[in-house]
Simulated assay, not measured.
Amino acid sequence: MATLRKPAAAQPTGVLLRKDIQTLGIICENAHNECFKPSSYDLRIGSEYLNTNGEQTAIQIPLRNCTVIIPPLGSVIVSTHEIVEIPKNVVGKFNLRIKLAVKGLFVQMGTQVEPHYKGRLFATLHNVSADPIELKLNEEKDERERIFTIEFFFTNGDADPPKNPKEYLRLRDFIDNLSFTRSPLSTLLESFDAADPKLKEARELLGTAKAELKLAVDDEIRKTQEELTSWAETEVATSVAKELKEQSKGWRKLVIDFGIMGLIVVVIATIMPIAFSIAMERARTATLSDEERTMGGRISAIETGLGALHDTLSGNDKLEALSISLDKVNATVRALEIENSEMRRQIEELHRTGYTDDQNPGENPAQEQ
Rank of each mutant, 00 (worst) to 15 (best):
T332W: 11
C28A: 12
K214R: 09
A331D: 14
V236A: 15
I61V: 13
I271R: 07
V266F: 12
E348P: 00
A8R: 06
A130I: 06
L4T: 05
D327L: 12
V329T: 15
Y355S: 11
S239V: 07
E226D: 14
T229K: 09
A9H: 02
L17H: 04
S230N: 11
L96I: 07
L206S: 12
K6T: 13
F94P: 01
N89H: 01
L206C: 09
V267H: 06
S248M: 06
E212V: 06
E227F: 01
S239R: 11
P161G: 00
E48W: 09
Q22W: 00
T353P: 00
L63T: 06
I69R: 15
V333Y: 11
R203G: 03
H32N: 14
H32K: 12
T124E: 13
T124A: 13
Y41D: 03
F276M: 15
V90G: 00
T13P: 00
N95G: 03
E220S: 05
G14T: 06
K103C: 15
A279C: 05
A269V: 04
M343A: 15
A216Y: 02
D311N: 09
G119D: 05
T80I: 03
I264A: 14
Q369L: 04
E320A: 13
A202G: 03
Q108S: 12
D218M: 04
N177Y: 02
D142E: 14
L137H: 14
K318S: 15
S248H: 10
I61K: 14
V236S: 11
N138D: 15
E339K: 11
R120K: 15
Q359W: 12
G207R: 10
H351W: 14
E139P: 08
I221E: 13
L24A: 01
E292N: 05
L322C: 03
S40D: 01
L228E: 14
G305V: 08
A123F: 08
L17C: 06
V91K: 01
Q359S: 04
N164F: 00
A308N: 13
S179Q: 01
A232W: 02
A286G: 10
E34K: 06
K223Q: 07
A31P: 02
G305E: 10
E140Y: 08
E167M: 04
Y168R: 02
S277W: 05
F153Y: 14
K200W: 00
D196A: 05
T111C: 07
A301L: 10
T149K: 02
K210M: 11
P365G: 07
A269H: 12
N30K: 08
D131T: 04
A275L: 15
D42N: 12
W251E: 14
R345P: 01
Q56W: 10
R293F: 06
E349P: 01
D327M: 09
E348R: 04
N340L: 09
F94C: 08
K318V: 13
L100Q: 08
S191D: 13
G110C: 09
L215S: 09
A331Y: 07
G305M: 10
E114N: 02
